[in-house]
């Protein structure tokens, strides 16, 4: 199995390290050429969603990436990655890849002073550590979306078909179970 990690900006190296620990082939996706080489799944990392979106357009990756995800390419978006995949962003007329019918609120916990670390239950895994950095959350979602985790009654992880999104950063902890969960989704 070969997983691509979108490497335009942000914490992509941390995802690559996590995947390598799980013994999968990993490649960095920076250009169209990297992308069409063929992958079984892709991770959209944390970073700044405005920056990554801008770079997706500049590199010509935006449209092919959206088409492949819409056609079933498994994708896992963390933090900024979740914002990129959401169909709507609260208080913002613009959305990005529009692949999963959720509305996300950006910087939902405020500025860096609002960043936090906690433990909560993730469906199908159990208690996991969660690191939230200037994080978004899921403000609303359509029926077809399945919620996987909540913190203080707020939805912070979800899936729909082959799309997995989290507000938090599993790649910033040593716990590899959410990455494994994504890999299991690909082979399921």
């Amino acid at each position: 199995m070969k997983i691509g990690v979108l490497a335009l900006q942000g914490g992509f190296q941390e995802h690559i390290s996590a995947l390598r620990k799980l013994d999968v082939d990993v490649c960095e996706i920076r250009t169209l050429r990297d992308f069409i080489a063929g992958i079984d799944g892709i991770i959209l990392p944390g970073g700044e969603s405005t920056t990554i979106s801008r770079l997706l357009h500049e590199t010509g990756l935006f449209r092919p990436l959206k088409e492949h995800i819409d056609q079933g390419l498994p994708v896992f978006g963390t933090c900024a990655g979740m914002i990129l995949l959401a169909s709507e962003i609260q208080d913002d007329p613009v959305s990005h890849l529009d692949c999963i019918p959720i509305t996300v609120k950006r910087n939902a916990y405020g500025r860096q002073l609002g960043s936090f670390y906690t433990h909560a239950r993730f469906e199908g895994i159990g208690q996991i550590p969660m690191t939230f950095i200037r994080a978004p959350y899921i403000a609303s979602f359509k029926d077809e979306v399945h919620i996987l985790a909540e913190v203080n009654g707020i939805q912070v992880a979800a899936e729909s078909k082959k799309i997995l999104v989290t507000s938090f950063h599993p790649e910033l902890t040593d716990d590899l179970r959410v990455h494994q969960y994504f890999l299991n989704k690909i082979t399921a």
């Binding site: 900006q9 992509f12 700044e48 960043s115 690191t131 200037r134 950063h169």
Partner: peptide, 17 residues
């Protein structure tokens, strides 16, 4: 200690930028 980790984490999200 936890706050310091979170602060280092924010810098990690700025990488490549």
């Amino acid at each position: 200690v936890e706050r310091y980790e979170l602060n280092k984490n924010l810098a990690q999200m700025l990488k490549g930028g």
